[in-house]
Each structure stands twice: as structure tokens, then as C-alpha cells.
Nucleic acid binder design. Sequence first.
DNA 1: TTAGTTTCTTAACTGAGTTAATCTAATGAA
DNA 2: TTCATTAGATTAACTCAGTTAAGAAACTAA
Lengths: 216, 216
Amino acid sequence: MTVMTSDLGLRERKKQRTRQAISDAAIQLFLARGYDAVSVADVAAAAEVSKPTLFKYFRSKDELILDRIDDHRAEPAQVVRGRSAGESPLDALHRHQLRLLADRDPVTGISDRPQVIAFQRLLYNTESLANALLAYSIEGVELLRDALVEACGPGPHRVTAGLVANQILITTRRLGLDNWAQVAGGRTTEDLYPEAVAAVNHAYALLRGGVGDYCG
Amino acid sequence: MTVMTSDLGLRERKKQRTRQAISDAAIQLFLARGYDAVSVADVAAAAEVSKPTLFKYFRSKDELILDRIDDHRAEPAQVVRGRSAGESPLDALHRHQLRLLADRDPVTGISDRPQVIAFQRLLYNTESLANALLAYSIEGVELLRDALVEACGPGPHRVTAGLVANQILITTRRLGLDNWAQVAGGRTTEDLYPEAVAAVNHAYALLRGGVGDYCG
DNA sequence: TTAGTTTCTTAACTGAGTTAATCTAATGAA
DNA sequence: TTCATTAGATTAACTCAGTTAAGAAACTAA
């Protein structure tokens, strides 16, 4: 007679709890003392597991943090593929970006939740994490390129779709970084939100119409 | 009576030779056996110095490689600042890019020198190096942004110049990566060169005129 | 309950990077 | 030339990230 508390077996539930315990201990310690001042041994001890166990759940120290970031890598490609009939890929991505902003999604760099702010500070102030995040943010280029090719063809040149995908992703990243810089500088979310919307609109206008008007 | 062999003292000359010896040993071993299969201790031994000495000359294992890459980070900003009267920043950058290509500069991804090809393979096939390279390639954004602001003003929105700088640098990187992929796939330089020129021209047309024509 | 499997711990290891004490050798002034 | 100064190197020992192997503990299914 199995207990009905969960669909998964006890073993699976324990694994989930262990993973969560490690992750929680890591975030808490990193936020309290800083990434570099905390060793993985400290995290393991706080989570009451051994070091090898920690590395069975997380591939590296970086991943203890990066795991907490919602995976947006495949999103742009999905947005392009899932757009409504008659909508252009760029319109769909633009609309999606405004949606994320309205939801105050952490990727946009706009959030007033203190935990989120502290977490982002950790991310952007730790070199190895910031580098990993940059790599992460354009990891989806090929996916987006494929989606664009599907939607619009390869374009007039072999490199077109890839270049466009790159521009879109780096622009998204920059917008997020820029908002974060403002928030880190003390701006409030309410204060910043209209500007952030305008920035997204402006960025998409740049993408669509080019930078020729600005700087020749 | 000082010997006239060099302007620098013996001590300084020895330092230069030591640095070179470490760098040479590192590249040679990495190319022969692969980055991960060679330890810094191996490099130090081959260069006949101690490990702490190695780390006095190079901050990390990565830097043993990255040190060999010509520093192009400040170049875009310099190109913009040093452009001839009447030339737009984008035109200057475009021209500069074609110049690098004509010179078969390694950054362009086009080179038929086997050493360069082997070196690039090492760079792009080693995750930590590829990540570092990505970070490196857009490290000059703020410099370029400042140069653009100087040349064209901040633009119609707070974020404009930064977004444009980002797009230019990521585009340059992508062009290089794309060329490298072709070379790595067996294309010859002569074969590829005209395409690469066309790609640069196309990329700058995209930057100038936007992607709107391609994908809405 | 037990056999079989998965997961955990312990202990010891490799490799990157650092630190402190000690030693060597280039330098420059007497 | 000589010698004190000082920059640079070495040795040895250390911290920390990440891995491996052997065995102990515990969930699962019968």
C-alpha cells in the first residue's frame, strides 16, 4: 500500500530535497559572505552532504548560482516559432520583450525584490559568473538563427540570419545590463519602468531600421 | 663601460627572455597535446622555471594562450577617433574591417598559416578559452560607445550609443567566427576571401540599414 | 525479510593558483 | 673591484575546485 503524498518514490523525493538543500545553502552563504569567500566545502557542510555528492548534483561551483537563473536560452527561438499568423519575427520578439518587462522578469534587470537585486549584484560583480552569463546569453544564437531561417529564409547572404540572431540576443542582453546598472545605482522600479519600455522600443527600432540614422 | 647590446639592463632582458620561454613552451605543449592534457607544472618544467615564477608572468593558465592574441580591444574606438574628416564612424569601421581582411589578420578568422589555424582550433575548441574570448571581444564596448558619443552625440535615447557599440562588436566577432568555421571545414583562404569581403559589406549594410528588410 | 540497486560517505588524489622563507644574482655606489 | 642593495627565482607547503575508488547506508521490489 503506497502512501499518496507524491507520485515519485521516496528516493526521488529525497534527491529533490537534497538538491534544494545544497542550492539554498549555496545562495544563502554566497549572499552573506560573497562568492569567493565561500568554498564548496562550506556549502557542502552547510547542506550536510559530502563534497562528491555536491558535485553529483552540480557540475561546478558556478552552476550553484547559474542553476537559479531561469533558462531563457531557447525562448527567442520559441517565440519566433510560436508567433501568431501575420506577425513578423521581430514583432513577436519585441512584444515578448515588453511582456517580460511588464512582468518584471529578472532577465530584464528590472526587479524591486531585494533578493533578486542582491542575487544580480552577486552575478555581475563576480567575474567568472559574469563571463559565464555572457556566454549563456548568446548560447541560443544558433537556435534563434534556425528559427529565423525557418520564418524568413536564410536571407540575402550566407551569414545574414546568424548576424541578425546575434544582434537580437546581444541587444537583449545589453538592455538587461543597462537596466540593472540603473537599479544598482539606486533607481526605483516604478521610476525606471517607463524608460525601460522606451529603451526596448528604441532598441527594436534600431534593429529594424539600422544605426545609419544615428551614426552614418 | 656598459655593453651596447641593448638599451635595457641585463635583468630586464632576462625577464623578457623568461617570459618568452614560458609562452613558447606553453603554446608548443598545448598544440602538441591539447590544453587540458597539459598542466601548468608541465609548462613550467619545459620552460625551466618554477610554478610561482610562471604565475608571476602570467595570471592564469588561460592567459598563457590569450597573451598571444593581438590586443584589438581598443582598436574600434581608435578607428572612430582617428577617422578622416568627413568620414562617418561606421564607414571608418567598415573600411578598417576590410583592411584587416585584406591583411589576413587572424582576428578575421581568415588565415592560411597552419600555425594560426592550429592556434585558433585550440582557442575555439577549449570551452574556457572560447568563453574568455567572447568576454574579451566585447570588452571594448564602453570605449567604443564613448568614441561614438564623441563623434555623433549620445543619440536619441540614453541607451543608443551603447546598443550600437554592442551591435558593431558582436557583428565583428560573428564574422570572424563564421570565417573560422569555414576554414576549419576545409575551405581555402583564396576561395573564401571574396565571400568574406562580401560578408563584411553585407554585415555593415545590415548595421546601417537594419534587419527590417530581411525579417520584418 | 531479503536481494539488488542506487546513492552516499570517506579518503585520497590531481591540478590551479598562492604564500612565505630563503637564496641567487644584477645593480649601482664607494 | 668590492660590497651592500634589491629584484627575481626557488622550495616547500598551503588552499581550494573538482575527481575517483571502495565501501557503507538506505530505498525498492519481490
